[in-house]
């Protein structure tokens, strides 16, 4: 019976059906299935398959994102049910946000989805976030990577402030800093002391793997 649930969870992610994924996760818990097994044997292979179909060109962005949404919907049911020492196996913990004064969401949302689909745990703190809010979230979640997005030449200066704040908080060597956004360049990233820059969501995944020193 458990195999059948894993298959259904996987299918809900691959087919991009968040409502189904949530319902199946609930049914699985009612049937007393191990939530960690449901994640590792159902959701993880599902999102890997989605990533594979995206990289071969069969899936487009909406399929990728709705697949990740389906995984997220099921995780919201299964994760709180983990018991004892059970822990999700993730590549790395990432805090994402758009800097203060900047309301542009979509770029960093896409980066978050791509990272989630590739096994990262992502906490998206949203747009218009102060340097303090970034630092607080990094500490709270024990982040490996922080990604700060800025779409305006006036707000990209906040990325520099974030680097400085992390230095003064003694976090500069503990968390890797990724920056992105339309006016941001590789050169600017180096100048302000960030660890990585990506021009789009797909290359952001490569950078994140490199910063984790993990195989891509």
């Amino acid at each position: 019976m458990s195999e059948e649930f894993y298959k259904k969870l996987m299918a809900a992610v691959v087919d991009g059906e968040p409502e189904d994924a949530e319902a199946i996760a609930k049914e699985a818990l009612e049937a007393n299935l191990d939530p960690l097994e449901c994640i590792n044997k159902g959701l993880v292979p599902g999102i890997q398959k989605v990533g594979e179909l995206f990289s071969t060109g069969e899936y487009y962005l909406p399929e990728l994102i709705i697949g990740a949404d389906a995984m997220k919907a099921a995780l919201e049911i299964l994760e709180p049910a983990l018991v004892g020492g059970q822990k999700l196996d993730v590549v790395g913990m990432v805090i994402l946000g758009t800097v203060e004064g900047d309301l542009h969401e979509i770029g960093k949302t896409l980066v978050g989805t791509m990272l989630t689909a590739n096994g990262f745990k992502v906490v998206d703190i949203g747009a218009n976030q102060s340097v303090e809010a970034f630092v607080k979230a990094i500490k709270e979640h024990g982040a490996d990577i922080v990604g700060a997005s800025a779409l305006l030449t006036t707000t990209m200066l906040q990325q520099k402030k974030l680097v400085e704040a992390l230095e003064s908080a003694g976090l500069k060597n503990k968390v890797k800093i990724m920056v992105g956004g339309a006016p941001v360049t590789d050169r600017y990233a180096q100048e302000i002391g960030a660890d990585g820059y990506a021009e789009d969501a797909i290359s952001a995944v490569d950078i994140a793997f490199r910063l984790m020193d993990a195989p891509v």
């Binding site: 991009g16 487009y60 962005l61 909406p62 399929e63 994102i65 709705i66 949404d69 309301l103 969401e105 979509i106 949302t109 896409l110 989805t113 747009a127």
Partner: peptide, 16 residues
Amino acid sequence: PGGHFLSQKHTRKNMR
């Protein structure tokens, strides 16, 4: 307001 359309099945159907 302020959201995005990539998660919508309508987008999945039409974006290609």
